[in-house]
Amino acid sequence: MLFTDAVKDKTSFLEKIEELLILSDIGPKTTGEILDKFQEMDLHYFRANNFDNFKNHLKEILISMIPTQNTAIELDSNFLNIIMIVGVNGTGKTSFAGKLAYYFKNKGEKLLLVPADTYRAGAINQLNLLANNAGVEILKTSEGADPASVVFDGLQSAIAKKKNLLIVDTAGRLHTYNNLMKELEKIKRVINKVSPNASLKTILVIDATTGQNGLAQAVNFKESLDICNIALTKLDGTAKGGIVFTIQKELHIPVAFITFGENINDLSEYKPDKFIEALLD
């Protein structure tokens, strides 16, 4: 819409850029920084360029602001790999865990799903159904069990069965609850103790509809755990997930996966240029 009119006037151009970026949830601060880069241009720039040039230039600017390395999860072939999935309530962690298991199964990995969300009613059964759907093995556990001990069992089982990948689904938690964040740290300690050589990667799941609070989520989860990548879910709606741009820029945590539907294969590896393109669409 924005780029269909040839925009000649600087003020209205910048205003439209502002609206576009704000509505994508990039946030006012980042938007301000992006606008500043255009403010430096003289009027000639705005007269001389058509909308395609603007779009390409804006894309270049955006790409230059976020990490484009380490966007893929590389498994360690020598040691046990553990992927722990964390995030606030309702972002789609369990669905993502199922999709991720399916993705790695298709890559030939020998994996075990660990349902460490023993809190939410029905979460374990949900993951069981997804595991069944994905055709992967899942650890047996029961609601109310201590999540760290479930992970402990998962590690023992993975070692005994010579698995090379453990995918751990955890309960949703708001980052403002310290005791719940400590629970995650405990899981991490258990992993380090039982398998000190294991390669642990923690993925933070952020839902594309999330607003500016997403940054606080990422900051707090990062403080408690080393967040290695982000999974951006629910991109099949109308929300763009712009806050994830700001998270990447501020915290240098790259996205690894995006998801966009309720089918087990609605998952893609993240591509920065495609993400930016969709953001400006």
Binding site: T209, T210, G211, Q212, G214, A239
Partner: peptide, 11 residues
Amino acid sequence: DSLMGQDALQV
């Protein structure tokens, strides 16, 4: 969800 961003209005 109160954590939602700009899209809440459209939804």
